[in-house]
Amino acid sequence: MPVLDVKGLKKTFGKFKALDGVDFEVRKGEVFGFIGPNGAGKSTTIRVLLGLLKRDGGTATIFDQDVWSDAVAIHRKIAYVPGDVNLWPNLTGGEVIDLFASIQGDVNVKLREELIVKFDLDTSKKCRTYSKGNRQKVALVAAFASNAELFILDEPTSGLDPLMERVFQQCVEEVKAAGKSVLLSSHILSEVERLCDRVGIIRSGVIVETGTLAELRHLTRTNLYVELNSPATDIGQLPGVHELVEAGEGWKFQVDGEKLDAVMSYLSPYGIRRLESAPPTLEDLFMQHYGDVTGRAEAGDS
């Protein structure tokens, strides 16, 4: 039974279809990466999940309860960090953390103090004086100090420095080790790659790909670098070869998984002097789904 289950989720604003059938689930004890560029529908999905927006279609449940009608019951067991943390300018960070704790009722005081030290947050300053990163720290401390079962984090590290990003990653790993679940929306792909068990890619309000990174990689291209003894001029014409560039003494390109065999057969008569292959990064996967616009333009040209 998934902790969070979304099926065919739809949301329109006027005529604009922000979400057009979003499907995914977050299972117990996993970190689910929710990736997509700005405007793809990540935050809209999350705000529907929090009961702040009313869906126009589909189902969405957390802990098997409806996100709209059982919002308060659900919220007792989740922790949310918004992408844009807006706090009350005349309250201090410490006051906000404590207020959130007392609204939530169930907070680990010792952990909270540890987190404040870890994130190096000055809690006696008014929120007015905080930078974006510091406001995010306030929200993160409040979230990770709670005894939530599910963490919903919407681009939580966009304002943090690399040191703090590492602290954040440790926090996520700790809650995961404790058997809790995390929905991590992000466009920092290296972070997602490091933390997430499964990934969902959203584009224009639709999930275009879900699965473990290994599964996604299987479907996609491998990065190759080859140096040949005699020049092969037609590499670019082979089916399944993409993004060909000349690099140093050889060529760099990507190959679709199912065409790899054909490409290697084509290349070996030329005498392979050197061959390096790398699994596609999440960024490659991501660009493959979003590079479509340029892809289509190229197709139109030829």
């Binding site: 929090l50 918004p82 706090l87 009350w88 609204i103």
Partner: peptide, 13 residues
């Protein structure tokens, strides 16, 4: 100003 999210996102109806 996006601040009600922080309250409604917790156990406040």
């Amino acid at each position: 100003k996006g601040r009600v999210d922080s309250v409604l996102g917790r156990s406040v109806s």
